[in-house]
Design a binder for these strands. Structure first.
Ligand SMILES: [Mn+2]
Ligand SMILES: [Mn+2]
Ligand SMILES: [Mn+2]
Ligand SMILES: [Mn+2]
Lengths: 221, 221
DNA sequence: AAAAATAATTAGACTAGTCTAAATTATGAG
DNA sequence: CTCATAATTTAGACTAGTCTAATTATTTTT
């Protein structure tokens, strides 16, 4: 069955807007995500339902079918592999890769995806620390928590960011915070959920709740 | 100005259907090339004329404007660079790269094209021996002639093929004929323009007029 | 439980790109 | 040069994807 570029984008959006699988995604969230009108989203959801990619009941929002979930994960895999390619091989910055990967993810070829994966040495994560689904669609589970959820001071490895906007990524770069870095969490302010940490380079950085909430880290044994 | 994927395909087709620049390309050749109806081609040509990409007079066919020529060459550059990437880095065979490059050539990013070029070490030719235009759109001129135009026996380097069909490329692979090989042209039959040559590996291969006409070679000093 | 506010759907229109069928222009054989 | 044929263009219709405006359903408030 033919899946159009637009349909692929919707599938990926539904997948990434739901925090846990089978969370219902509303029409309005999709419309907002695509900067389009609710009527257009309705139209598309009905189309996707016809293709058995989503469960759709009028006024109730959508969830992915098994088939739809498989497709969405597959597109995410392509997206993240291309991001690794752009970052590792073409030396793009981590704030530049997303927009290009948005285009590249629609190149239709199973074989290409798998060869790219091999060429890149089967990377586990993309430049933002997002896990790359394997050939079968399996996604490695992730133990990292947002800095805002950490209650114990100490050493943590930064493994992932959940805001991919240029402004956020540039801010982190300026603060010398990179994926993979081990930082020392020195202060946790219960009052406003902000924190203070020492970077790999030794600088002291203060992070607001907003920034900290988008940085995932795991305890360094 | 926005150029759609379809418009890009038409521009590239016009460019590659004309043997010498400013050769007029007819409506029917384009319709045939895209396996579409003449009415659709007319529609598109009028659209391209509106965008000042082609010179179009009713019933007279089209040629590229300066602006259109620039655009077409640019798309050809992207196509051929991606072919090199697929061939060199992902180990696709020379008969597999074209279809994928047809998709990849539409990724819109000047920066990506130039970085890919650099990553591949500024290749001169794609896997079929077709020259890759440089950043400015300059195309290296090509001294090679079809085997059917060669009158002198001797040693020749195979530099390019002009039929990109899987069946032709597979045929050459079976006969052990590759781009870059130096072959010994041992017989030239004036009667049917067929020829006989000895490959790098020492095999004797007979080539029909049809096959020989799509193999370009240059004299080996 | 009804009214008000919000969210979602439908109806109808528009563009890009395609098609078929009909009309028009060019060509080339006699 | 004229008429038949081939090539091209136009007219009108269809699909995907979008929009606005109007309608309907759900949720929240009172
Ligand atoms: Mn991304
Ligand atoms: Mn990413
Ligand atoms: Mn090609
Ligand atoms: Mn080629």
């Amino acid at each position: 069955m033919e899946i159009s570029l637009t349909e692929e984008n919707y599938m990926k959006a539904i997948f990434s807007l739901q925090l846990n699988a089978d969370e219902v995604v509303s029409n309005s969230r999709l419309a907002e995500h695509f900067n389009t009108r609710a009527a257009s989203a309705t139209d598309m959801l009905q189309r996707l339902a016809d293709k058995k990619l989503v469960h759709y009941k009028k006024y109730q929002g959508v969830t992915l079918t098994t088939k739809g979930h498989k497709l969405a994960v597959h597109i995410v895999r392509r997206h993240r592999l291309w991001e690794v390619f752009l970052y590792e091989k073409l030396q793009f910055k981590w704030d530049e890769v997303h927009d290009l990967a948005e285009q590249l993810e629609h190149i239709q070829s199973e074989e290409l995806t798998n060869r790219l994966d091999k060429f890149l040495n089967h990377p586990k994560c993309d430049p933002h620390g997002d896990p790359i689904p394997d050939k079968k669609g399996q996604i490695r589970s992730d133990l990292a928590k947002p800095l805002t959820h950490i209650i114990q001071k100490g050493y943590y490895r930064i493994t992932r960011v959940t805001d991919h906007s240029k402004s956020f990524l540039n801010y982190l770069t300026e603060q010398n915070i990179c994926i993979g870095d081990v930082v020392k969490l020195e202060e946790i302010n219960a009052y406003d959920a902000s924190c203070k940490l020492k970077t790999t380079g030794g600088q002291i950085v203060f992070l607001s709740q907003k920034a900290a909430s988008h940085i995932l880290a795991e305890f360094k044994k």
